[in-house]
Design a binder for these strands. Sequence first.
DNA 1: TTGAAAGCGCTAACAC
DNA 2: GTGTTAGCGCTTTCAA
Lengths: 335, 335
Amino acid sequence: MTIYDISEKAGVSIATVSRVLNGSSNVSEKTKKKVLDVMNQYGYTPNAFARGLGLNTMKTIGIMCADSSDLYLAKAIYYIEQKLRSHDYDSILCCTGYELETKMASMNLLITKKVDGIILVGSNFIYEKESDNQYIADAASQVPVMLLNADLDAPNVYSIVSDDFTSIYEATLQMIQTGIKDILYFYNSSSYSGKRKLAGYRAAMEEKGLLADERLIQFYRGSHEDIPAMTKHLSDLKQRNVIFHGVIAADDTLALASVKYARETGYRIPEDFSILGYNNSMLVHCCEPELTSIDNKLETLCQHLITTLLGVLEGSEMPKKTVFSGEIVKRGTTR
Amino acid sequence: MTIYDISEKAGVSIATVSRVLNGSSNVSEKTKKKVLDVMNQYGYTPNAFARGLGLNTMKTIGIMCADSSDLYLAKAIYYIEQKLRSHDYDSILCCTGYELETKMASMNLLITKKVDGIILVGSNFIYEKESDNQYIADAASQVPVMLLNADLDAPNVYSIVSDDFTSIYEATLQMIQTGIKDILYFYNSSSYSGKRKLAGYRAAMEEKGLLADERLIQFYRGSHEDIPAMTKHLSDLKQRNVIFHGVIAADDTLALASVKYARETGYRIPEDFSILGYNNSMLVHCCEPELTSIDNKLETLCQHLITTLLGVLEGSEMPKKTVFSGEIVKRGTTR
DNA sequence: TTGAAAGCGCTAACAC
DNA sequence: GTGTTAGCGCTTTCAA
């Protein structure tokens, strides 16, 4: 079934069929109905490739994320996909892994597929070395690139971020105010957002003159899902005489591991030991007491990301960078 | 930059350029190099739409899932996307929600986009009423449809399932053998796979003459992430004098809620109370003691799904239904 | 309000 | 080994 078949059966030209297809106003009600009837009768569906060829767009956005099974990224993808669909766009998903090389490959693939825009979900797409970010600038020379929770200053690149620095800064101050001096910072990513969080912790600790021991800053490398391994990481610190009575964790998984650690060590939570998580994910309900965590307003971020993207695609002037504040959701693991 | 531009600059015909592009052997090394050089020099990328128009395929698979932020579905999507990409296919993701209507809409969209195949992730796409599954059969008349953890007998529809019935059946028997007679079944989905699980529980309990009280079968309706609500569901049973000392849960989230319930009620785990989860997700590490759970071999299922799909696309004869066995991973919540 | 016809960029059958 | 050419199905001027 092509537009030719329909035009023939309906006794009109293909141009008319095309007009009906695209809701052009310059068609008489009568012919319109006739054409529509024939279309329904034969169950006609326009060929997306042919349309794409002519219009040079298929209303598709490329979504890249390192690992769609990561709790946080999965949620972001969910929001983004929903909101795109409601605006009649759909999305090609690429799970890129964490290597620069595979990220570049995915990027090229999306460009090849002629997506109308690209969304990078998560801060791990931005690298320390500026030249390693060139692939993003290159892509942006072809289509708009949106960054969720990351920041890069380049033409046609737009950033939507949560103010991780301030969130952690304030949460750390709060914990200090409850009387804890030896607060450990526990993280597993040195991405853009990861560095901002760490800086927030540092700023608060230094402001209060508490950052005596650099060993209070602990980087966990290992699977993002392996909670026992994270717990072990903390236990191992005991042997090295690193003592702490509070943990600021860069995500809820790490916080959960900290809860386990505190339990095993015999601390009461929150009387002897405080823990703060990040993301306010479903994991906050997975321990006893429930986890105090920072809500970084993911849905709001995604909403704005899409709004900005659609604006850019329409040719409007849009803000290069949008920053939202997080919020500390107080539960049982902090005083 | 089109194939015409390249052919001109390289001093060859477009056919030759096309041959180089598609790795055809009938090109001399010399011309091949010449063409390749020009391509690189101008940064040429072939237009996917034009290619799609000619070949009538864009090597794209549609993936539908109700909610990509669901822990289990997200993992499945991850595996599927990875494996597809390694075979040079990419994927359009549709998060359909749980309504039949939106599922049908997504299905149509994918067909419109001319995907080469459709994968339905999760068992909630199959309905009780046969006529409600017609949309799948319809889609299958156009492209192969793959079901992950669901089953439908229709032409061009292929099923890859885990044997949920047997897994739960055996786990229930095991729990009974540890001396527990009042085992509650806790579930939140009446999908194909949900029903198979329940049947497994029923079979085991009836075999041992233990299914006296239908109230031991509890359906939780509510958010799939709201663990406190699930816990409350169990607590409310106490008021109705439903007593139980074991829980077979249809997924790890429900199991986690059961752990909380047991804690609150003052039961010791596993001395007074046993709990079994399902999916063997990261959540198993999120409680104390860690959760015994059924591993349904998701990665294996996904691997076979892709293999089968690729086979079908190549025109090979492929099994309509493939069944894998699950495995009980014993941890601390059962004796 | 409608129709004719020229692309859009590529593939593949056919000719040389 | 290489070139010519006819589609693929649709959109969009331009005329009527």
